[in-house]
Nucleic acid binder design. Structure first.
Lengths: 349, 349
DNA sequence: GTTAGCACTCTCGCCTGGCGAGTGCTAATG
DNA sequence: CATTAGCACTCGCCAGGCGAGAGTGCTAAC
């Protein structure tokens, strides 16, 4: 109840020992184990007393009487906020990640997919990467290609190298030549703009310039703009969802099912990730702190990545609440930074 | 051993009853159950005798003494080949599928993804669709877009409406204008060709025409051709892999793991599917008939789909050996046909 | 050839008792 | 007064035993 207990140094050390041990063994940890494995210079009995206090204040819990203790969500939270010392990556690991990411740089989607895979493999958790919404990106180039009489392929190249294709159904056939002119017109006026800003400014230009073109184009142009503006769904890359099956807490198939269903739904994922780190910093959400019931057994560590300081996407790791926070936080931070650098570099060239 | 046993009418009826029942209940089925549920006009004792024979000839097996019988792979094979009456889809179901597939026709990737999802939902199995290799498709259009000084975006539109994008790193900067000429040249000479045929004919043309262009282009052109020709990986769409978790035979997580790992690997999937129905007909592979050990507990039903009779891809359903063959075979056949029609239609327009 | 009856086998669920791990309390200790 | 040792107690887990239920195989009768 109170919660206003004093968290003395010894209690902290014990909570840390319990958490560290549970993270690495996945077994409830008892007083004896702590006394043996972490030489805090105190006896199991003392540890027991302290653990009883910690349980009362909600930092630890017992799966059942007379099992060891495991950290509660509150315990993990305290661990993450105050106890854990972020374990920086070894030079070799940094070098390895660096090397992996620098390889096939020029296909951006491959880069992101690859990054996700890398994180997943290094953490044994599910890795998620959210790409920037089309609307938030800068338009670099538009191309229009006639597919047949009714359909035009619209290709949008946006910073920092994404390519989107859409098929637009047009009301009237348009010649390739005319289409090229339209594309030219669009490029001339829209290049460098952020996609979501396009409509307003375009409409102004449109009026002035429209007379030059066949009136048939009016509807087409409108459709193309609509196409650009709509379907502004983020894309989300997943990797390593299978790693979840390796975690002992998910040996029960009934626990896995809702989680996998959650991971399968683009929309909810996008939602969650979008909320997660859109406000700039690395963030850790633990267990029941999640809004979505399906992932109340999981923790998520997320960090934004960006171009020249502007956030363009979010990178996250999802795993059991018993995850190796110290390592994974460092990793996520490092990779997000590296990804930002890489994208910035690509964008500049 | 013998196998040369006479499979009389009654044995067939019993095998069918066992199989039907096991498919719908997932429980070993005993003689009593059959006598009660399927009125074959014979008593449990007689059924027992026949079942013993069927077991000896390898069509049935017992999970343990004194459980009911379940069909062996050989039993399923016989069931599929000789007993099962393909259960045609109801008019409503056909209509529903038809309606679903006719919706957003013009984005072809979405169409295929959508088809996979539909099959997965209707079968409660995993649905897989293999797209044609780039190399086997007809080139409809090439577009080259400069991204920056070192990179060019190559866009390939191929029948029946696929769009592929690749980034090519070029040795020397090329102006947009020159690039446009190259694209024009390529379009003029390559349109309508099957991608895998491109190299030979191009080289001939190349020599004749090359003099017109800056010699710097030579290397670039070569790179572009290489890009087109390489990376001819099929793409495979998956849907409904989660449905597998619903099947009682996969309640054990240890059985799911290798299967999911298998489903996660593009390359092996492509391999399996490529072999499956490349020779034209609907095919059923049951349990241990599979080459890959990971799916020896599964059956796969696959059918090719194509454009104007030319196979361009393969559609498959993967589920437990205890799957509803009668229904799923009809479904796969129907959807493959419909997909073929749709693609043919799109290609023609 | 078919069927009824019966003994047999096997799984499954349930209960039991012993074991080990870990706790909480109390009293002794520095 | 904080710390520790000792001890009784609680619980989950596991192995073994038992009965119920389902289903078979065999035999003898129809």
């Amino acid at each position: 109840m109170s919660g206003a207990e004093i968290m003395n140094e010894r209690k902290k050390r014990i909570l840390q020992a319990v958490t560290d041990d549970y993270i690495s063994t996945a077994e409830p940890v008892g007083s004896r184990t702590i006394a043996r494995r972490y030489n805090l210079g105190i006896s199991p009995a003392t540890i027991r007393n302290e653990m009883a206090d910690l349980e009362e204040s909600g930092y630890l819990e017992q799966p059942h009487t007379s099992a060891g203790r495991i950290p509660s969500d509150k315990g993990y939270r305290f661990y993450v906020d105050s106890l854990m010392q972020a374990r920086p990556l070894s030079k070799e690991q940094q070098a390895r990640i660096y090397r992996e990411l620098k390889r096939r740089q020029h296909e951006i989607e491959a880069l992101i997919q690859h990054t996700a895979k890398l994180i997943a493999d290094l953490t044994s958790c599910a890795a998620l990467i959210l790409c920037p919404r089309l609307q938030d990106r800068v338009l670099k180039h538009i191309e229009l290609i006639p597919l047949n009489e009714e359909n035009v392929l619209v290709i949008l190249v946006t910073s920092p190298g994404f390519v989107e294709t859409r098929v637009v159904e047009i009301p009237h056939p348009i010649s390739a030549e005319e289409l090229r002119k339209v594309a030219e017109f669009l490029n001339a006026h829209l290049q460098g703009m952020i996609v979501s800003n396009i409509r307003v400014s375009l409409l102004k230009q449109l009026h002035l310039e429209l007379v030059r073109y066949n009136s048939l184009l009016e509807g087409t142009l409108d459709l193309i703009i609509k196409t650009i503006r709509k379907s502004g769904k983020e894309r989300v890359y997943r990797e390593g969802t299978m790693h979840i099956l390796e975690q002992p807490e998910f040996r029960d198939i009934e626990k896995v099912k809702p989680l996998f269903e959650f991971l399968g739904e683009d929309d909810t994922l996008i939602d969650i990730l979008g909320n997660a780190s859109s406000h700039g910093e690395l963030r850790v959400v633990i267990g029941k702190e999640h809004e979505m019931a399906e992932i109340r057994d999981c923790s998520m560590i997320s960090a934004p990545y960006g171009i020249r300081g502007n956030i363009v996407g979010i990178l996250a790791v999802l795993g059991p609440t018993r995850m190796d926070y110290a390592r994974i936080i460092s990793l996520v931070e490092f990779v997000a930074g590296l990804l930002s650098d890489t994208l910035t570099e690509i964008d500049a060239s």
